[in-house]
């Protein structure tokens, strides 16, 4: 049986009188690519924030299984602890460390697995030196693999928009995640770039043995890549299924296109 990496149980998020996410039950299995779609304001990013600890859900639980046979309730844990457990994410509006170099951006993402204390780090004790060298070697390998090595010394904010998106994904990869959450990775990309990104997401899934859960608006990308799709509208899950099912689901079409008034 394939392991369930992430599961949300009746997750509900309420802001005052607004129910942003209502009774969300998502199951993400190992090595799957799952998409979360829905019109603007449907609660997709809120769902992400509930999973990554930015918000604590008003109701419900988030269960994460980092390995076979182990399960952890990560509801309401700190984002940094969730990241340490192996869930990495990107952001809808790119959140790079803008004034730092490409290299530093990725190197910082290695900090979470550092075992040496700040004293050992300050005194450059052998244990720390070894760890630092390993981190740097990892970053070098990663940046070379994704063709960002040549621009490693550039400021992150000076990269073209598309490369910034890639860099954010690479930075998330540097934390060695099991589960990668991508919040609109193709936002602002043209069709050619989107199709390159589609290949890239598949590649990293296989290369790093990832499970991917993403929010996306580009339907070509979503339909081509997803194993399953969840559709949110006004916080409610209105459909789930594989791409063909979703494409033919009437409620989804309605949510996206609106009701036909003449009918």
């Amino acid at each position: 049986m394939i392991r369930t990496v992430l599961r949300t149980e009746h997750v509900t998020m309420q802001f005052g009188g607004v129910i942003a996410v209502n009774d969300l039950n998502i199951v993400v299995k190992e090595h799957e690519i799952i998409a979360l779609i829905g019109p603007n304001g449907a609660g997709k990013t809120t769902a992400f924030n509930d999973i990554t600890g930015v918000y604590t859900p008003t109701k419900g639980r988030v269960i994460y299984s980092p390995a076979e046979g182990s399960e952890a309730d990560i509801t309401g844990k700190k984002p940094s602890d969730i990241a340490k457990m192996g869930i990495a994410r990107t952001f809808q509006n790119i959140r790079l460390f803008k004034d730092l170099s490409v290299y530093e951006n990725v190197l910082i993402a290695k900090h979470l697995h550092l075992k040496s204390s700040f004293v050992a780090a300050t005194l450059r004790l052998p244990g720390y030196k070894k760890e630092e060298e390993a981190m740097r070697a990892d970053v070098e390998r990663l940046l070379k693999e994704v063709n960002l090595w040549d621009v490693r010394n550039e400021k992150a904010s000076s990269l073209p928009y598309g490369k910034q998106r890639y860099l954010e994904i690479v930075r998330a990869l540097a934390t060695k995640p099991q589960l990668l959450l991508l919040d609109e990775p193709a936002a602002g990309m043209n069709p050619k770039e989107t199709s390159e990104l589609t290949d890239f997401i598949r590649q990293i899934r296989d290369r790093f043995n990832l499970t991917i859960f993403m929010i996306e608006h580009h339907m070509d990308l979503v339909m081509e890549i997803s194993d399953r799709i969840y559709v949110l509208d006004f916080g409610n899950t209105i459909a789930t299924g594989n791409p063909t099912e979703i494409q033919n689901n009437e409620r989804v079409i309605k949510a996206y296109l609106g009701e036909d008034e003449d009918a």
Binding site: V54, K78, P79, S80, F97, L100, S116, T122, R171
Partner: peptide
Amino acid sequence: SSYGRAFKAIREDEIAAEAMGIGL
């Protein structure tokens, strides 16, 4: 050191730093 880089990450973007596993 790596800790100094973590400080800079917090300066640049707290939310991103936290999502990268840096305990604020």
